[in-house]
Amino acid sequence: MRPVTIAMPKGRLFAPLVELFSRAGLFDLGPEVDLERRLTVKTADGRWELLLVKPADVPIYVEYGAADLGVAGKDVLLEARRELCELYDLGVGRCRLIMAVPEDSPIRKATDLIPGSRVATKFPRLAQEYFSSHGIQVDIVKLNGSIELAPKAGLASAIVDITETGRTLAQNQLRIVEEIMSVSARLICNRISYKVRYPLIQELVRGLQAVEVSKR
């Protein structure tokens, strides 16, 4: 059988994920390889192939079946809204989706926003849903990075973004006013791969559960 392909998010989550997976007995990448420039990595036993992709692209690879499995943040999954199986909450990459405003802003909560205010975010769909469900009318501005800059530059009066510790926000004189949801990395699976590779997937989830139990 061809190797199981798993789309892995490049960036801060990659190292903790590899460690988690090797502790769960799934795969070992062996001696340090220079992963920065690689696009794919095969494990020594040939059972696994890792595709190294941008975090937001993971669900796309998995939905189309180009990867059997993948790891993506719940935020990315909710934003992409694709047809996938969500197998397991890996517990890593825990962070919060928040709304923040400049420290000197009079805004204390989301409903303080003046109707028509601009809100900058990487997650336009999630942000829109949040404000709509609270009856708040805002203009969502989609940015691709450095969201913290938007209020400073006068582009937006608030931002909706992901934060782990809140440190970056504080450094940029931003204050959290709403916690929208907490998110973590999920193991996802293509719907047909779920059927075709069912025994292996069950083995994998059991392996991950065992690691979680041993941590308690």
Binding site: E83, C85, E86, Y88, R186, C189
Partner: peptide, 9 residues
């Protein structure tokens, strides 16, 4: 239906 086993749990 969505095969979302995390939500199920």
């Amino acid at each position: 239906l969505n095969k979302d086993f995390v939500a199920f749990g």
